[in-house]
Design a protein around this nucleic acid. Sequence first.
DNA 1: TAGATTGTTAATCGATTAACAATC
DNA 2: TAGATTGTTAATCGATTAACAATC
Lengths: 215, 215
Amino acid sequence: MPERHVPDIVVARLPLYLRALSAIQREGLAFISSKELGERLSISPAQIRKDLSLFGDFGRQGKGYEVNALLARLRRILGVDREWLMVLVGAGHLGSAVANYTGFAQRGFRIAAVFDNDPQRIGVRLGEHVVRSADELDAFVRAHAIRLAMIAVPASAAQTVADQLVRAGVRGILNYAPVTLTVPPSVRVENIDPVLHLQHMTYYLSAEPEAAGTS
Amino acid sequence: MPERHVPDIVVARLPLYLRALSAIQREGLAFISSKELGERLSISPAQIRKDLSLFGDFGRQGKGYEVNALLARLRRILGVDREWLMVLVGAGHLGSAVANYTGFAQRGFRIAAVFDNDPQRIGVRLGEHVVRSADELDAFVRAHAIRLAMIAVPASAAQTVADQLVRAGVRGILNYAPVTLTVPPSVRVENIDPVLHLQHMTYYLSAEPEAAGTS
DNA sequence: TAGATTGTTAATCGATTAACAATC
DNA sequence: TAGATTGTTAATCGATTAACAATC
């Protein structure tokens, strides 16, 4: 019932809670306290309680949160209590891996079709898909009212693909290409660039030349 | 010379600056202002100036930042002004895609070897690698003083692999498995779980039942 | 009941932004 | 010079944490 302004940074943590709770459910635990959940996720118990309290009172004093109930509620909040259809654009090495990854369907994200503009790849079988021509992308997205897409094309082609997707009605893009996409404010983009993560880590692994001492 | 306490959130933005500046360099621009860089990245100019000023005075009033010089400096700050060797554990669909991705080597991250514990996969050619037995992992990491690793094994095996890597001396792990890893504080972990990003987006794409109006 | 843990408030902490003198 | 943009300070904004009454 509450559902006040939910900061985006809180929304970003909810899937993490969901993932951890799924594991806890598989372990057969019926209740979990914010303390223990926090330990598993390296998040403070206070933060977990505060985040969850934005959406209602799920906990029970003295016991913690009922795992099944909280899982169901989080799925509902995140909108993953149903199946989502996605299109995948790009059938190279990365696109192939994405198409073959079973984790999407397991968690409710089904790839409805895979597209590429390379004649060499069109028609090729990819897991349970046959790669389609990018020419069919617009019609397919419209026909199936697809709202989610994944881009796994080279950086040079990513913006063009994004423009096509947006025009066809896509509202969320998971972008694997190492470029910042420009889209209208009504469209959400999330980026995955593994090199960015590696560079983040090397900062800490590189002994800074001047700053030898810690203090 | 300055190099005061650098917040981690600033460190996380530096690779983004680096990536954008590389593109700007390819376009042939010699100078870029914080205003224009900010527009490309959807980051405020003030934030860019503040972030960069933590590391010194790179800019020139009236002109902006010299692209080449800033690029070189950022590479040095992040520790990517040299090549890093990595090991990749897991040679399934995802591991194969990672092994074949040319973007790592292009940006200075070289995969030195690929490991798997499935006899079916050991010995198989993967891009320029031949998959090795996981039994050799520890010795290899030590022999080559490897500090970075990527985990692309099933969730159920990820923690065990992480433990092995840490014992062998790895200091940074890029984890593709959808689990939270537990490692000593001296080891850094970055996670990539595409489903988490999708769930983040579906929150906004799902019309909340009760919150029909915007206000 | 005694013990444990929630939900929430207030305090703290940290990050972002606005503004502007300095200066290329 | 006039115009543009930096580096930096102070103000604002927002997020995290500590603490505790409420209560299962």
